Amino acid sequence: MLEAIGVSDMKDVAAEVACHRFSNGEWVSTPVYVPSEMEFTIYVNQKALVTILCTAAKLNYLVIGYLYAEGIISGIGDVASMRVSEEEALADVRLKNPGYKLPALRKLGCSGSSVFKTRGKRVDSELVATPEEVLSLMKRFLEQMELYRLSGGVHTSALSDTGKLLILAEDIGRHNTLNKLQGECLLRGIATRDRLLLITGRISSEMLLKAEKMQTPIVVSRHAPTRNAILLAGDMGIALVGQARCDHLAVFTHPERLGCST
């Protein structure tokens, strides 16, 4: 079941500010909402690991997803305990291995992962979808973007099967949205393998590597992918779909996953 952001939660992720709009030759003063941001630090075994600029929603999922994406944990079973405090802007994570050697403290903006890789494992999947199913999912995806509709200025990602959306995450950082999806799936026991990944932003090679970690064989965006992302997707067996809007889309790799035999 998709969990949407409730109205009462919006105060934590969006702020009302004054704005002066110019339209049709006139100025109008009006209140608007803008996305809020916070510096959030993850401590592992009492050592500061990373400070992330993020949106204050689903922070527990962000923590677990980040640790998993960076290879610090292989699953939720590696975590002995976790305390997340929005007020203190921190997460205190204790691993079952107290002697785990952590890398130096990093500070990340909205750009995402601190680990740079150029290759990923191949995604082994039989999943296929029709263009009509993908476009229908994108339509529902865009309808569920509550924070974006309120304030703009955020990215959104969702995990789905071929018929419905499963979970959704919004954040000022593209990579944060995927980490939140991954973390929620780990904590709730939701399988990511053989699913579709829907995102609003540009598809970069880093985003593709996160998709590979989730073993999602179809990645769909409203925007275009980078050249490196296309090369990676081809090698990893991922169907890379871009420019999915209204009644059209473009498939850059493995079109057979969308029923195209060319």
Rank of each mutant, 00 (worst) to 15 (best):
60 N>F: 03
58 K>D: 14
153 G>I: 01
171 D>R: 03
79 V>P: 04
194 D>A: 10
151 S>G: 02
51 T>M: 10
259 G>W: 06
213 K>Q: 12
191 A>D: 15
58 K>V: 05
55 T>W: 03
117 K>M: 11
252 F>K: 01
49 L>S: 06
26 E>R: 15
118 T>N: 13
23 S>H: 13
80 A>P: 03
131 P>R: 04
20 H>Q: 14
233 A>L: 11
163 G>E: 10
52 I>V: 14
155 H>L: 04
117 K>C: 08
62 L>Y: 04
181 L>C: 03
135 L>H: 08
243 Q>E: 15
176 N>K: 05
257 R>Q: 05
62 L>I: 05
182 Q>T: 12
67 L>V: 10
58 K>Q: 15
207 M>D: 07
231 L>R: 15
123 V>T: 06
153 G>M: 00
261 S>M: 12
253 T>K: 05
189 G>F: 08
81 S>M: 01
1 M>F: 12
109 G>I: 07
70 E>W: 03
115 V>R: 07
220 V>S: 00
95 L>G: 03
19 C>G: 03
174 R>D: 03
246 C>N: 15
228 N>C: 09
36 S>I: 06
113 S>M: 11
135 L>Y: 10
52 I>D: 04
250 A>H: 10
185 C>P: 09
38 M>T: 14
254 H>L: 06
95 L>V: 05
42 I>N: 00
196 L>K: 07
183 G>T: 06
170 E>G: 00
108 L>P: 00
191 A>C: 12
138 M>E: 03
11 K>L: 04
218 I>Y: 04
236 M>Q: 14
138 M>S: 01
182 Q>N: 06
22 F>H: 13
41 T>S: 14
172 I>P: 01
99 G>A: 13
51 T>C: 14
6 G>C: 09
3 E>G: 09
76 I>M: 09
13 V>I: 13
26 E>W: 11
178 L>W: 01
259 G>T: 08
134 V>Y: 01
169 A>W: 09
231 L>Y: 13
189 G>Q: 09
81 S>P: 05
234 G>F: 05
208 L>E: 01
151 S>Q: 02
149 R>E: 09
188 R>W: 01
134 V>R: 09
110 C>N: 07
21 R>P: 02
88 E>P: 07
134 V>T: 09
